[in-house]
Computed example of a mutant assay.
Amino acid sequence: MSPRPDTATPRRPGVARPLLTTLAPVDPAARPVVAVHPGALPATAWQPVAARLPEDHALHLCDLGNVPEYFAAALVPTLSVIGVQELAHRCLGELTAAGLTDRPFTLAGWSFGGVVAYEIAARLDAQGLGDRVEDLVVLDSIAPVPAFQRPDELLRPDMLLTWFAMYLGAKRGRRLTLEPTALDGLGEEEGLAVLLTAAVEQGVLQEGTEPAGLRKLYTAFHTGLVRNNRCTAGYLPAPLDRTVTVVKPERSLLPDSPDLGWSGLSGRPLRQLAVPGDHYTMLHEPETADALAALLATGSRTG
Rank of each mutant, 00 (worst) to 15 (best):
F148T: 09
A74R: 11
T96K: 10
L61P: 01
D63E: 13
G83F: 06
R123P: 01
D102E: 15
A74I: 00
S141M: 10
R150N: 10
L154K: 01
D135Y: 10
T106Y: 02
G99S: 13
T106C: 11
A165Q: 04
A126D: 12
A147V: 10
V84Y: 00
G114R: 01
L100H: 07
L64E: 02
S141K: 09
P54V: 07
M159V: 08
D131I: 02
T78N: 02
M159W: 14
F148V: 04
A147C: 06
G93F: 03
A117D: 02
L64H: 03
D152N: 12
A72Y: 10
G99H: 08
G109W: 05
A143Y: 11
A108L: 10
D102M: 06
L154I: 00
P146F: 11
V137G: 06
L139P: 08
H89V: 02
E86G: 02
V115I: 14
I82F: 00
A58E: 07
D56R: 15
P77Y: 05
E119D: 14
T106A: 13
A126I: 01
L154H: 09
E134S: 15
E94H: 13
Y70P: 00
G130T: 12
A117C: 03
D152L: 15
Y70C: 05
S80T: 11
L79F: 06
Q127K: 11
V116C: 04
L136S: 11
P104D: 12
N66L: 05
R103N: 08
F71H: 14
I120Y: 02
L79W: 06
A122L: 05
L100F: 08
I120K: 03
M159Q: 13
L59P: 03
E134I: 07
C62E: 04
A88Y: 00
G65Q: 11
V76L: 11
S111L: 06
Q149A: 14
V76Y: 06
N66C: 08
H60F: 01
V115C: 01
E86Q: 13
C91A: 15
G130L: 12
A97M: 09
A58D: 07
F148D: 14
Q85L: 06
S111Q: 06
L107F: 00
G83A: 10
G65R: 07
G65L: 09
L95R: 10
A97D: 14
Q127L: 14
T101N: 12
L155K: 10
E134M: 12
V116H: 03
A147H: 11
A147F: 01
G109A: 11
W110F: 08
V138K: 04
L87V: 00
F164I: 04
G113N: 05
L124H: 05
E134A: 15
V84R: 00
D102A: 15
N66H: 15
G93K: 09
E119W: 00
D135A: 15
V116G: 05
A74M: 09
A88G: 04
A117R: 00
G99M: 13
A121K: 03
C91T: 13
D131S: 15
G128D: 04
L155N: 13
S80C: 08
Y118A: 09
